[in-house]
Design a protein around this nucleic acid. Structure first.
Lengths: 140, 140
DNA sequence: CAGAATCCTATGAGATACTG
DNA sequence: CAGTATCTCATAGGATTCTG
């Protein structure tokens, strides 16, 4: 008890992994889904960009306006990585000056729900975490 | 259409955020929940440690065995950060040699479900992402 | 406008050695 | 056993300048 009622353990006995692993060695696999997903969205900007595009297609400069403190360099790189992974699509309109539109692909839209679940957790837990930090820092 | 049926937009019109923000400026707030959560679990090891402790309390060396390629330095630091945020609890047994046990707190257990949702997405999407990468790299 | 190129720095993280 | 203390390196990421 104490851990038996965890929803996660009902489906994934070894912890957070989902299958194709025996027992608790899931963290060993360098291609385990945990590492896989975090390498993808664990960087500083990917989720912000995905969240921005969640409300519809944006041009390069529009994304940058939505995330004011991202540099052009990191925005370009983040967009490229997401495009390479098939999460967003890039469309160039050969106008003068050129205009480029970014939008979520169908695959990219499927990540919004998992991200939303995570963000909602963060929102609900913010106060508790803040308190925990203050208690920890006060005790140290 | 195209974005109107997104589940995420039903609850969170501005994108991934959940509330207390007007329109699409959610990414501007440095304390926005997206950045908040990613600063917490977006590092290389936190989720692996949380996933390991999901199956029950572990001693320091047991966590290290579960995640073979983490260094003692990073394991210590990751455990400290998670403890500070109130997600895990540290219990010292004054035996000789000393033994220390780590376990999820009630708060820490609440993050397992969001993480599981994300991991399951990664698992389901792995093939699609792999294909997208190959197509992108072939076209470049 | 939408980048590409270059330079630079801060930090994440590994390796190793030491200790109560 | 469960850390701490250094040292070192790779890379994420910022600032700036240039261009089709």
């Amino acid at each position: 008890m104490g851990h038996g009622e965890l929803k996660v353990t009902a489906d994934v006995p070894g912890g957070l992994s989902t299958k194709h692993n025996e027992r608790s060695k899931w963290a060993v696999d360098p291609q385990c889904p945990v590492r896989d997903v975090l390498d993808r969205i664990g960087d500083k900007w990917s989720t912000l960009v995905l969240g921005t595009l969640a409300s519809g297609p944006h041009r390069f400069s529009a994304v940058q306006r939505a995330i004011p403190d991202i540099s052009k360099r990191m925005l370009t790189q983040t967009l490229r990585d997401l495009e390479r992974d098939g999460l967003i699509a890039r469309t160039v309109f050969p106008t003068k000056p050129p205009s480029v539109e970014y939008r979520l692909t169908p695959l990219g839209e499927t990540i919004l729900e998992p991200l939303t679940v995570l963000v909602q957790w963060a929102d609900r837990s913010r106060a508790a975490i803040k308190n925990a930090r203050q208690a920890y820092d006060a005790a140290s």
